[in-house]
Design a protein around this nucleic acid. Structure first.
Length: 673
DNA sequence: CGTCCTTTAAACAGTG
DNA sequence: GCACTGTTTAAAGGAC
């Protein structure tokens, strides 16, 4: 492309740095195991009998894990094993390796898929989010481990002063605990699987005894908790902690994420930042919020996020009051919790299915990509599957720009989830494929919104026209008007794709602004701003409606419930005929809340999520789904843009992007570590 | 095949 | 003179 000769590319040479965050986490996670044995912080009062007991339990646990793993590998082989690395002994898969399983896609494959858009962005987004969740768990585990080390060392110091405990007993104890940690790591992956398979059926708050059985195979949460307390709390070692509540807690949260993160939730206030997949039970909340008041998953933006509640709570204290009064452990809460559990369960199921599908698609495409004729950009790859740093080094040949590293512009302030970036997906390729024409459907807010996180990070060309994007940018603004530069900024902020080749797309933006009558230039005090003439915009809408049926389907379904996650899920649901969604979840805001909660937690920063009203704009889906309905069956509400999208606008920690006229030159460095 | 639409590229003018 | 903004033209490609 010739755009490099444009004036705006002059300084791009040095600006773009390679992303560094993604791989390091994996590496750290991987190295955690090796480091682990170094911990020499001894500990406390656990007698040797207890120790023996613990070790016995561990042996049992390991055996059970192995069994479970084998079972899962057999039964779920369709899901993940197709591309499993065979030299990796199944029994020893550390979590860092196991977690790579979803990423076994080669960058080539990923790229091709992205370019061809055979996957709906929603599906990819779901995948990304799931990966983010996993990575977050890793991080939490790390933090947890560090904390544990610190505490153990503290206790060592104390005990050395007290002359209480001989050192010999401490080392094996530490070792035992480290083994526990190791197992916890190893269990993360399989636990996810087990969630998918067993899910929340086991989570019955009213029946604490029942749920433990399947989960305990992997976790033994009570024992773990007990062990922790024994090890860490010398002064409370005598106490028995395995009461009903604790088992309920552990069970509940084991469902939500994983044992390690749950443990950290309970015991390590620093480790619980996000619980994306959490099912929030009252009990758990009461535990976690005490120590982590700023990240209560049920509280955000002054609103109680208990499914279906949305009560306004000015501050956190009032929220706690509200939570304890309105959502106490009663029948109603329990029922709601069950519903939520089912929702999550379905989500997990769906995730599993989508993952399987993705895997199959990847496999399929990989075969094709090796064919001689294909491979439009055979060198347009990144080198590492694991989102490693080296990915950025393999710059696409036909794109002289150093690849930008969209290292999680999503959540600059929450490094955790952002680990999963699309570093491995960057570079759309030298040749702009005109696949977007297939989707030359004027977008609605929801369309952009549902994929925003995806496009924010993946350098994939959004399948929306410039006009649609410009309109979206303008409508999203508070005053429904933007200067040209602000439009530029919106593009770069919302789409990783537009962080390069600025001369080209900026020219296109200007061209579109001038060309389309729907964009009205308004002289302002401080210059000129651009606004949208919706009538004009609507006039040009009934265009060809063709293209990917699934995409359209996604669009359709998403409009009703707006949140991106919802959209993807619903689309997939529909395809997979999962009944619960259409009945239990769709009808009430539960799923919407869940989805937005998940999104929020992943985003790290967010504004209100009015998933109820936001941008459903039901009048749009017929148009977009190909039904040539009359253009203005519904007065187009400019407010619609303030739904999910505004949510993302604030996801960037720096709302002021006026500086990013040089965005192309300095892309998203802010969130690099 | 023609038309419409979109994208890309480029030239040009006005302005600060 | 330069950068930015805004307009306009042209060409190409895809969809209908």
């Amino acid at each position: 492309m010739m755009q490099e000769s444009g004036p705006e590319t002059k300084s791009n040479g040095s600006a773009i740095q390679n992303g560094s965050s993604s791989s390091s986490h994996l590496l750290e996670c991987g190295s955690l195991r090796e480091v682990r044995s170094n911990g020499e912080a001894p500990a406390s009062d656990v007698g040797s009998a207890d120790l023996a007991h613990v070790q016995q339990q561990q042996a049992l646990q390991v055996a059970r894990q192995l069994l479970l793993q084998q079972q899962q590998q057999q039964q779920v082989s369709g899901l993940k094993s197709p591309k499993r690395n065979d030299k990796q002994p199944a029994l020893q898969v550390p979590v860092s390796v196991a977690m790579m399983t979803p990423q076994v896609i080669t960058p080539q494959q990923m790229q091709q898929i992205l370019q061809q858009q055979v996957l709906s962005p929603q599906q990819l987004q779901v995948l990304l989010q799931q990966q983010q969740a996993l990575m977050l768990q890793q991080q939490q585990l790390q933090e947890f481990y560090k904390k544990q080390q610190e505490q153990l060392q503290l206790q060592l110091l104390q005990q050395q002063h007290a002359g209480k405990q001989p050192k010999e007993q401490v080392a094996p104890q530490q070792l035992a605990f480290q083994q526990q940690l190791l197992q916890m790591q190893q269990l993360q992956q399989q636990h996810l699987l087990s969630l998918q398979r067993q899910g929340l059926l086991t989570l019955q708050p009213g029946q604490p005894s029942l749920p433990l059985q399947p989960l305990a195979q992997g976790m033994i949460p009570t024992e773990l908790q007990q062990l922790w307390k024994e090890v860490t709390s010398a002064h409370t070692a005598e106490e028995t902690t395995g009461n009903n509540h604790s088992s309920l807690d552990l069970t509940t949260t084991c469902v939500s994420s994983s044992a390690p993160s749950k443990t950290s939730l309970i015991m390590n206030p620093h480790a619980s930042t996000n619980g994306q997949l959490s099912v929030h039970t009252p009990k758990r909340e009461s535990l976690s919020h005490e120590e982590h008041p700023h990240s209560h998953p049920l509280y955000g933006h002054g609103v109680c996020k208990w499914p279906g509640c949305e009560a306004v709570c000015e501050d956190f204290q009032s929220f706690l009051k509200h939570l304890n009064s309105e959502h106490a452990l009663d029948d109603r809460s329990t029922a709601q919790c069950r519903v939520q559990m089912q929702v999550v369960q379905q989500l997990e199921l769906q995730l599993a299915k989508d993952k399987e599908r993705l895997q199959a698609m990847m496999t399929h495409l990989h075969v094709k990509s090796t064919e001689p004729k294909a491979a439009p950009q055979p060198l347009n790859l990144v080198s590492s599957v694991t989102l490693s740093k080296s990915a950025s080094e393999a710059s696409p040949q036909s794109l002289p720009h150093t690849p930008t590293t969209p290292t999680a512009p999503i959540t600059p302030n929450t490094q955790g989830p952002s680990v999963i970036t699309t570093t491995s997906m960057h570079t759309v390729g030298p040749i702009r494929r005109r696949y977007s024409d297939k989707y030359n459907v004027p977008i609605s807010s929801a369309d952009i919104a549902q994929n925003q996180e995806f496009y924010k990070n993946a350098e994939v060309r959004p399948p929306f026209t410039y006009a649609s994007l410009i309109r979206q940018a303008i409508l999203e603004s508070p005053e429904k008007q933007l200067t040209l530069n602000e439009i530029y900024n919106w593009f770069t902020r919302m789409f990783a794709y537009f962080r390069r080749n600025a001369a080209t797309w900026k020219n296109a933006v200007r061209h579109n602004l001038s060309l389309h009558k729907c964009f009205v230039r308004v002289e302002n005090v401080k210059g000129a701003v651009w606004t949208v003439d919706e009538v004009e915009f609507q006039k040009r809408r009934p265009q060809k409606i063709s293209g990917n049926p699934s995409l359209i389907k996604n669009m359709q379904s998403s409009h009703a419930y707006c949140t991106p996650l919802n959209a993807a899920l619903q689309a997939s649901m529909a395809e997979n005929s999962i009944p619960l969604y259409t009945t239990a979840s769709m009808g009430n805001p539960t799923l919407g809340n869940l989805a937005s909660t998940m999104r929020e937690e992943l985003n790290g920063a967010m504004e209100h999520t009015n998933s109820n009203e936001s941008d459903s704009s039901p009048g749009r889906s017929p148009v977009q789904s190909g039904h040539p309905v009359h253009v203005k069956e519904e007065p187009l509400d400019p407010e619609e843009a303030e739904g999910p999208l505004s949510l993302v606008t604030t996801a960037n920690h720096s709302p002021d992007f006026d500086h990013d006229r040089d965005y192309e030159d300095e892309p998203v460095n802010e969130d690099m570590e």
